[in-house]
Design a protein around this nucleic acid. Structure first.
Length: 283
DNA sequence: ATTAATGTTCAGAA
DNA sequence: TTTCTGAACATTAA
């Protein structure tokens, strides 16, 4: 599910081993699944990547970026079930790619594991990268967004605030799980039109966004029931134990201790909220 | 045995 | 222009 905290956890785990290392080989693991989407074509991508150094590993919203010594950037999009790992893996059969690296500490591999196979890998030169992820394509990172950017973005749309939160052009990095958590802690009804939220609510929400995501990073992300998400060492995250509404429908709200959490569907995705604690627009 | 649901993104239609 | 729908894929629960 990698959302911002999970991807941040991945790059923190990978970085010390990848930074400064040379990509000796990039190979496809042999698994029976349909191959992940790669661009440009595999042979070309592999050729351009092999022999370069990884200067830095960074996070771009929910994507991982390898900044290469060639100036190219290799962008990995985990989508629903993708993971970067240093060792092990939840299962052998969904290993997709291996980078064999040579660094100061000797040889080491990084693996891309992806059960559903919706993840992608793309290589961009500097110009292509700037175009693909320019401001018209992706909004400010959720951890760096200013309040005025947030206020302006909300004023611009009448979509439900939950749906708007998932729009990566509004704010980049928040996904379905953290959207529900953020709205609960902010005390906002997920169905409320974004442009009807009063400035005080928006300010509160802007603070909660950063607070929830930073806290989740400290816990190394959320590992859900199916155990798909793991950190770089194939261990569980811990933030799932802090969830107040996500996947808790039918259970009593932890905040008011009275009302059961409800599940509704918005934009074909589940939203979880407490109808008592999360009220519409007011104030 | 079907069907619906699962963390994301994007093309194409309304 | 903005917003909505469905598809990409594999697996599990109902």
């Amino acid at each position: 599910m990698p959302e911002l905290p999970e991807v941040e956890t991945m790059i923190r785990g990978i970085r010390p081993h990848a930074r400064g290392a040379e990509i000796v080989e990039l190979r496809k693991c042999r698994c029976r699944c349909k191959p992940n989407k790669v661009s440009p074509h595999w042979t070309q991508l592999r050729k351009r990547v092999t022999g370069t150094q990884i200067n830095e590993v960074t996070r771009l919203a929910k994507r991982i970026v390898f900044e290469l010594s060639s100036g190219d950037r290799l962008v990995i999009e985990p989508r629903m079930t993708g993971l970067l790992l240093l060792e092990d893996a939840p299962s052998k059969e969904h290993l997709r790619f291996e980078w064999r690296l040579a660094g100061k500490g000797g040889e080491r591999s990084i693996w891309f594991w992806d059960r559903r196979g919706l993840g992608t890998m793309s290589l961009y030169d500097e110009d292509e990268f700037a175009v693909a992820f320019g401001p018209s394509k992706i909004g400010p990172d959720a951890l760096l967004m200013t309040f005025s950017e947030w206020k302006a973005a909300c004023a611009r749309t009448k979509r439900a605030i939950k749906v708007a939160l998932l729009d990566q052009k509004m704010v980049a990095g928040i996904g379905n799980l953290y959207a529900s958590e953020i709205l609960h802690i902010s005390g906002i009804d997920p169905r409320c039109p974004a442009n009807e939220l009063k400035p005080a609510k928006l300010l509160r929400m802007a603070k909660v966004i950063v607070d929830v995501l930073e806290t989740a990073i400290r816990y190394e992300g959320s590992t859900l029931g199916d155990g798909t998400y793991r950190n770089a060492l194939n261990a569980d995250g811990g933030y799932q134990n802090q969830h107040r509404v996500y996947a808790r429908d039918g259970e009593i709200c932890l905040t008011c201790k009275k009302t059961p959490i409800e599940r509704i569907v918005q934009a074909q995705r589940s939203t979880f909220f407490c109808p008592r604690c999360q009220r519409p627009a007011t104030r």
